[in-house]
């Protein structure tokens, strides 16, 4: 709880919705959530970094560090399967 209190309010999302169709935004959220983060903002806070490896040709996330220090590598192309689309969460601030 102490950690939650000390977190700045900016990082707390105001709302969440579940997508019905695939889009690049969904893909982005899917990749972060697979690695155990809410989204890019939380990733930046937890890892204390501004650098995120992305594929140069389409900007998809390439590599993420999990909370336990392991690395997740992502494909060049779409990874989010159809049945995971509505399980992905899109947060708004």
């Amino acid at each position: 709880m102490a950690a939650a209190v000390s977190m700045p309010s900016v990082s707390q999302p105001k709302s969440m919705k579940r997508p019905t169709h695939w889009s690049e935004e969904v893909e982005e959220a899917y990749r972060f959530q697979l690695a155990g983060y809410r989204d890019e903002i939380e990733y930046r806070e937890v890892q204390r970094t501004d650098h995120i490896d992305r594929w140069p040709h389409n900007g998809f996330v390439k590599k993420l560090v999990r909370r336990d220090g392991c690395f997740y590598y992502y494909n060049k192309t779409r990874e989010c399967p159809d049945k995971q689309i509505n399980k992905t969460k899109l947060y708004a601030y």
């Binding site: 697979l34 590599k63 999990r66 336990d68 220090g69 392991c70 690395f71 997740y72 590598y73 995971q84």
Partner: peptide, 18 residues
């Protein structure tokens, strides 16, 4: 590499960078 015990078992967690 580390073995994952979750339901989305389609990824490898690498302990070092590839």
């Amino acid at each position: 590499i580390a073995l994952e015990h979750d339901t989305k078992g389609n990824k490898i967690a690498w302990k070092v960078e590839i």
